[in-house]
Simulated scan of single mutants.
Amino acid sequence: MKKILVASTALVAASMLSTGAASASEKIKLELGGFSKWWVVGAWQDDSYQANNNGTAGAQGDYNSVDIKGDNEIFFSGSTTLDNGMQVGINVELEAGGTTDNTADTIDKSNVFIAGGFGKVILGSEANGTVLLHVMAPDAAGNTDSDGLLTGGLAIAKPDAVQTQVVTSIDTDGDSEGVTYVAPTFYGLTLGASYKPNSTQDNRGATNISTNSGVTAGEIYGVGGLYTNTFSGVDFKLSGGWATYDVNSPAYSTPSKGQGVNEYAFGTQIGYAGFTVGGSYRKINAEGVAGFLQGDTWDAGVQYASGPYAVSFVYFNSQAEGSITTAGEDEFTVYQVSGKYTLGAGVDVLATVGHAEYSDETNLQQNENKGWMVATGLSLQF
């Protein structure tokens, strides 16, 4: 995989040199874009969980029944076309307040790209190729994945003891630095591949894949594909991806050798006459890798959109084992109804009603939580 990506990059460089002068007529000018989404959230946690807050017996907890949640980013992007027809550009995504993932990473993504008839090469901080091509269940309010109020654990508190996934895409590397190649679309089929030297974003130090400091993913290789087409008025999407990496852990004398993890992800959507049904599945296979999370995550949903209106129902489930020695599996379940009404270009009113439940394999009340959420919000895209 690494050799393939290096060869692809070499071909891109060779094509730049062989197609004549590569000077641009003018410098790249950055344009602004992004989104601002704010929610007013009503959430009700399980009484027994609050009585034994966050897994600590006897420690009382009391969560707000009303809260304000935001997710805002500003995009800086620009590109130029060289005299040989090749496009060169840059993308930077700035977290702009209301951060919902409790991180202090101001710059979410930062990368440059080269594009032409050969496809597109992305260098820097960006989701891997399998994530970029992934399809999942439709949601009218865009209120799923790691930024979802319920699926991301932002409304109903996630107990520390529950170790499950919150997304169906292979996001193990997050937005860490690497190189991604996306091939030109051919008869509806788009292929992509990525190499990430390290799973930690903003890692400027020399990468040591044999470090015994906790259980982490080392070098990551991944390939994915997306097929889209329309047959007799029926829109069809199908995605698939695979990634592999070794695991670093204090439990291994040679942590970077022979402790491989494989991940698989699939997704599909079918749309007709305003209706869209779809779902996705992710499998983490870490048999024999001590202390590393493994399990299955999937979602399924249906959406109907007509004019400015859209409404959807989504079911999400994740089960995991391997992080705790107790026999059994942790489980995380969400079901929600969402709606959207478009007031104007880039201005949407959103709403979601749903339920989330966390179950721990120990079956201790202080390690489990469940509750309902009602939320309404305003989404601006610019």
Rank of each mutant, 00 (worst) to 15 (best):
residue 3 K to F: 03
residue 10 A to S: 10
residue 14 A to C: 02
residue 22 A to G: 09
residue 36 S to K: 00
residue 39 W to R: 10
residue 43 A to S: 14
residue 47 D to M: 04
residue 49 Y to V: 00
residue 49 Y to R: 02
residue 51 A to Y: 05
residue 54 N to E: 12
residue 64 N to G: 12
residue 74 I to C: 03
residue 76 F to W: 07
residue 88 V to N: 08
residue 88 V to D: 03
residue 94 L to E: 05
residue 104 A to R: 07
residue 105 D to K: 11
residue 108 D to V: 04
residue 114 I to V: 15
residue 116 G to E: 04
residue 118 F to G: 09
residue 119 G to K: 13
residue 122 I to H: 07
residue 122 I to S: 06
residue 127 A to G: 11
residue 133 L to W: 04
residue 133 L to H: 08
residue 137 A to I: 03
residue 140 A to N: 02
residue 144 T to N: 10
residue 144 T to L: 07
residue 146 S to T: 15
residue 150 L to Y: 08
residue 166 V to Y: 13
residue 167 V to P: 02
residue 177 E to P: 00
residue 179 V to I: 14
residue 186 F to Q: 11
residue 187 Y to W: 09
residue 192 G to I: 05
residue 197 P to D: 15
residue 200 T to L: 05
residue 201 Q to I: 06
residue 216 T to R: 15
residue 220 I to L: 14
residue 231 F to D: 00
residue 254 T to D: 06
residue 258 G to F: 11
residue 263 E to N: 15
residue 280 S to T: 08
residue 285 N to G: 09
residue 290 A to W: 01
residue 295 G to L: 10
residue 297 T to C: 05
residue 299 D to A: 06
residue 304 Y to R: 13
residue 309 Y to I: 04
residue 315 Y to M: 07
residue 319 Q to A: 14
residue 324 I to Q: 04
residue 330 D to N: 12
residue 336 Q to W: 07
residue 350 L to Y: 07
residue 354 G to W: 10
residue 357 E to H: 11
residue 374 V to P: 01
